[in-house]
């Protein structure tokens, strides 16, 4: 067991170079890669997530931390067993058809990846059919839909409907988000969850998968 206080401090400042040095040092000192990943990096990134949610950290600072984390994970990857590198879940993510906005969506992708999810990034202006295809091809656990325009919100409903019609609705959890979207709207269109920001999106993704795995509600 190592002390990850310094690693946390460095991750919080977003200094990628220094973080990589620390990770390499820990490896040289014989600490297992999976321990550095889980108890060091992912645990520290949880602190970043909490500070983002509380407003202590600004999002550009969070992104610097996430980027630094990505660099450090690359060092660990070859040293992780298949089991250790298993992802928390697979998420197909995109902005619905007719909508070209992607800043919020990209942020969600970054937070999901930092939380250990594999993100299949579909980009913007994505048709319902393309989402269905991506869920099938990747055997995804979660579909995360984004819309910024009030005029494209109905396309979220259409996307959910198309997924129902294609017979794969019960294989995937659907998350929705974007400035005009709210919980009521999510309930109305039959989504499984709504997240108001990127930090809660990754938390919600984890909660939803726990729920489905154990068949009962677990709260954080």
């Amino acid at each position: 067991m190592s002390d990850y206080k310094e690693l946390l401090e460095v991750l919080l400042t977003g200094d990628g170079e220094k973080l990589e040095t620390l990770v390499k040092e820990a490896l040289e000192n014989g600490v297992a890669a999976n321990e550095i990943l889980n108890q060091g990096l992912i645990a520290s990134m949880d602190v970043v997530g909490a500070r983002m949610e509380s407003g202590e950290m600004f999002i550009p600072e969070v992104l610097m931390s996430a980027q630094a984390m990505g660099g450090a994970v690359e060092i660990l990857k070859p040293l992780l067993s298949e089991e250790d590198s298993a992802v928390a879940g697979k998420v197909v993510l995109g902005t619905v058809k007719g909508d070209l906005h992607d800043i919020g969506k990209n942020l969600v992708a970054m937070m999901l990846e930092s939380a250990g999810f594999e993100v299949i990034e579909m980009g913007v202006d994505v048709t319902p059919e393309k989402f269905v295809e991506a869920i099938k091809d990747n055997d995804a656990d979660i579909l995360a839909l984004s819309a910024l325009l009030t005029t494209t919100m109905p396309m979220m409903a259409q996307t959910v409907k198309t997924i129902e019609e294609s017979g794969i609705r019960d294989t995937v959890k659907i998350l929705v988000g974007g400035a005009p979207v709210n919980q009521t709207f999510a309930d109305e269109i039959g989504a499984d969850g709504y997240a108001p920001d990127a930090g809660s999106a990754s938390k919600l993704a984890k909660t939803l998968l726990k729920k489905s795995a154990y068949g009962s509600i677990q709260t954080n």
Binding site: M52, G55, F58, I59, G104, L107, D197
Partner: peptide, 13 residues
């Protein structure tokens, strides 16, 4: 013209 503004970078809004 426009209606440009700052983003609140705590929330990206």
């Amino acid at each position: 013209g426009g209606t440009s503004c700052s983003a609140d970078l705590r929330f990206c809004s």
